[in-house]
Simulated scan of single mutants.
Amino acid sequence: MAQIDYFFTPISPWVYLAGDRLERIAARHGASIRYVALDGPALFPRTGGQVLAERHESRKAYRLQELTRWSKRLGMKLDLQPFFFPVNPAPASYAIIAAQAAGGGDLGALVQAFPRAVWAEGRNIAEDEVVKAILAENGFDPAVADRGMFTAADVYVRNLDEAVARGVFGLPFYIVGEERFWGQDRLELLEDHLAGR
């Protein structure tokens, strides 16, 4: 069985636009998914990139055009200027890591729920009440956010180090064996790889 290592941050609009396509691809090909939540803003300077605020205006303008195109193509509501963005990704990431360790809910749905909360629902995923509500909405005990916080914080740091060591430079990023795929727009190519095409 193939394993897909999925590197992501819950504040990325591109992670939001990936929706549940990865989970559907994995199900079609009998693959497992290992979810690796990490600090996206910390990843970019470590791999030659820049955080959004430091990018040239032409790059920022193009990003907005691409987000508009992709949200329209995928039929997904997307607020280009969400009220709670930028937002600290750590609380949501810790919750995902703790939930993955605890089990009991729908992890794929949880991973999708946090970026949707930012980009389509106007929710602040750095707030404790919002994090716990999203955990509950996806079948997890909201208390896992508190119980697993310290361990999750350690894993969060290690996930960033792993990402850098394995050649991850943008998010979302998918690795299957030695094959790497950057961006939600590469999911079809990931599926081709799993299908042996």
Rank of each mutant, 00 (worst) to 15 (best):
V36M: 06
K77D: 13
G108A: 05
Y62E: 09
G48Q: 11
G40S: 05
I25K: 12
G183V: 05
L171G: 00
P82E: 10
T9L: 09
R147F: 05
E137N: 11
F8V: 02
L43V: 03
Q81I: 06
D79W: 08
T47L: 11
Y62M: 08
G105T: 05
Y156N: 03
A90M: 14
F8C: 01
N124C: 07
W119P: 07
G167Y: 01
R28C: 10
I97C: 07
L160M: 03
T68E: 14
V118S: 11
G105R: 06
R28L: 12
L110W: 06
R180F: 00
S12N: 07
A153L: 12
F84A: 12
D39Y: 08
A117C: 01
W14M: 12
E127T: 00
A165T: 03
F84G: 04
L190W: 07
A165N: 04
A61H: 06
E162C: 02
P91W: 04
G48F: 14
K77F: 12
V15Y: 09
R24T: 14
G122I: 09
E179P: 03
A61Y: 02
A53I: 13
A95W: 01
E127A: 14
Q81F: 14
R147E: 12
R197A: 01
H29F: 10
E54K: 15
G40K: 07
L74C: 06
I4T: 02
A117T: 01
P86C: 10
H56Q: 12
N159M: 00
A101S: 11
L80K: 06
F150W: 06
L171F: 10
D39W: 07
R59F: 11
I33S: 05
A143V: 08
D185Q: 11
V87N: 07
S32V: 04
F114E: 03
R73W: 10
A133V: 05
R147M: 03
L190C: 02
F7E: 00
A133H: 09
K132F: 10
I4A: 00
S12D: 10
A153S: 10
Q81K: 15
F83P: 12
L189N: 14
Q65I: 13
A101L: 06
H56S: 11
